[in-house]
């Protein structure tokens, strides 16, 4: 059923998430200033920029993970399919089920590989019986290119996997709740080049089903995996456009300095 729904939506120019004049404050610190971003459906959008420029902060606003930080305050409007996600009527818990997240450091739960992937479907009641759950777990592990490596030890702990496997497990776990958008906060920064390549390949495949937003420090990675790129600097969104255009023909001098390695 899920696959049908995804196949019917082929128009890649649908706007999934729209941010207008988004502001984020940590206490008195104004961390994100006037950010306007459109996240397209079935597209990989990369956020690049030097450390502390606010790209991770902005990413965490998109599924209200910043709610867990008491001093954090968000203003402006961020809408998911036209609905303001900061509206009091929106349940952040439900929202996070629609907008999944993969973190910088692999953080598998202290559970078996199977239970890690089954976690989301179980708490959201997405499956009716064990057989369906088994199927979801297998599908997600296959999508995360992990199935062949772990199919014989689904009951062994997820924390026993290697770093790259753990990160792919976390991706499988995130897509198991069938989110509409997948947020990835530097998903490859703790991985070696081989695991990074696997994850990048995976991101490219996921694009056919989800909208993916990835924060990265590696400009090569942004160029390889994304279709659209946003460059953040000191809390401002400096430039946002087609990845090819940003990397070959940036309009803003700051973007040019950054991608050529002069600031950062």
């Amino acid at each position: 059923m899920k696959d049908q729904r995804l196949e019917t939506r082929v128009d890649t120019q649908t706007i999934k998430i729209e941010a207008r004049k988004a502001q984020v404050y940590y206490g008195t610190n104004h961390a994100i200033i006037d950010v306007d971003v459109d996240i397209m459906d079935k597209t990989v959008t990369a956020f690049i920029g030097p450390s502390g420029c606010g790209k991770s902060t902005f990413l965490r606003c998109l599924n209200r993970m910043n709610d867990t930080i008491p001093s954090c305050r968000v203003e402006g409007s961020i809408t998911l399919e036209g609905e303001n996600i900061y509206d009091p009527r929106v349940d952040p818990v439900q929202l996070r089920a629609r907008i999944g997240m993969v973190f910088q450091k692999p953080n598998p739960f202290p559970k078996s590989i199977y239970d890690n992937v089954a976690y989301g479907p179980k708490i959201h009641g997405l499956t009716r019986n064990k057989a369906e759950l088994d199927e979801v777990v297998e599908t997600c592990l296959r999508k995360a290119a992990l199935w062949n490596e772990v199919k014989d030890r689904l009951q062994s702990p997820g924390t026993g996997l290697s770093g790259g496997q753990q990160q792919r497990l976390c991706i499988a776990r995130a897509i198991a709740t069938s989110p509409e958008v997948l947020l990835m906060d530097e998903p490859c920064s703790a991985l070696d080049p081989i695991a990074t390549a696997q994850v990048e390949e995976l991101i490219d495949e996921l694009r056919s089903q989800f909208s993916v937003v990835i924060v990265t420090h590696s400009m090569q990675q942004a160029a390889r995996v994304s279709q659209r790129t946003a460059f953040f600097h000191l809390g401002y969104l400096v430039e946002f456009g087609e990845t090819g255009q940003i990397f070959t023909n940036p309009k803003d001098p700051r973007t040019e300095s950054y991608i050529s390695g002069r600031i950062g």
């Binding site: 599924n63 867990t68 929202l95 739960f109 976690y119 989301g120 959201h124």
Partner: peptide, 11 residues
């Protein structure tokens, strides 16, 4: 990070 992971899945 474990809490974030779980909250991020909509728990």
């Amino acid at each position: 990070s474990l809490r974030d992971g779980s909250l991020g899945l909509g728990a």
